[in-house]
């Protein structure tokens, strides 16, 4: 069974310039919480997840927080949850903050011709929810997740 047999081709994507407000509207409207971020030519540049929105509540810019968290001698002084309620955010944040500021740029992808087993292995190894499926040039062709693979396997076995 190949990825192209189980993947879904209709995907909601966002651009790097999509604002926080628009992102929240998409999350409100659709049942999934991971959106591929693509360029004009369809190349995948990142993934923005609902959890990534929490980054705006961090008291310092995301790249500085990332730098600190990589320092093994840094320990969080307060639990992350307190940020959500304590940090002051100006109302303009809704349009000033865009997908590019929030997305995870280390995207693990897979090709259409790879096996579903390989896709499952990547999902589990990297602890992912969604795996973007791309062509040779890195352009988005669809997505595949655990549900799609399970559905494919169950159909093949005649259970579903």
């Amino acid at each position: 069974m190949l990825v192209k047999d189980v993947m879904r081709r209709q995907v909601i994507t966002v651009k790097e310039s999509t604002t926080l407000k628009e992102l929240m509207r998409i999350f409100q409207k659709y049942p999934f919480h991971h959106l591929p971020v693509v360029k004009e030519d369809g190349t995948v540049v990142g993934i923005v997840a609902l959890e990534d929105i929490l980054k705006i509540f961090e008291p310092f810019p995301p790249y500085l927080m990332e730098m600190l968290r990589r320092n093994p001698f840094y320990t969080e002084t307060e639990p992350e949850e307190t940020n959500l309620f304590k940090v002051d955010l100006p109302p303009e944040m809704g349009v000033l903050c865009v997908a590019e500021d929030l997305m995870n740029m280390n995207v693990v992808t897979i090709k259409e011709d790879a096996t579903a087993m390989e896709a499952l292995s990547r999902i589990r190894s990297y602890n992912l929810k969604t795996l973007p499926v791309v062509d040779e040039d890195g352009r988005l062709q669809g997505i595949v997740n655990l549900f799609d693979i399970l559905m494919g396997v169950l159909k093949e076995k005649g259970i579903f």
């Binding site: 730098m67 320092n71 002084t77």
Partner: peptide, 30 residues
């Protein structure tokens, strides 16, 4: 030490270029 320095910034809810440069430097000078 990153932890002690950043804890003070958090307590004061510090925002600005000095805070940003200081955080970057404590992150890297180890």
């Amino acid at each position: 030490a990153p932890a002690g320095t950043v804890a003070v910034f958090r307590d004061l809810r510090a925002r600005g270029t000095l805070t940003n440069v200081a955080i970057a430097i404590v992150g890297l000078d180890d």
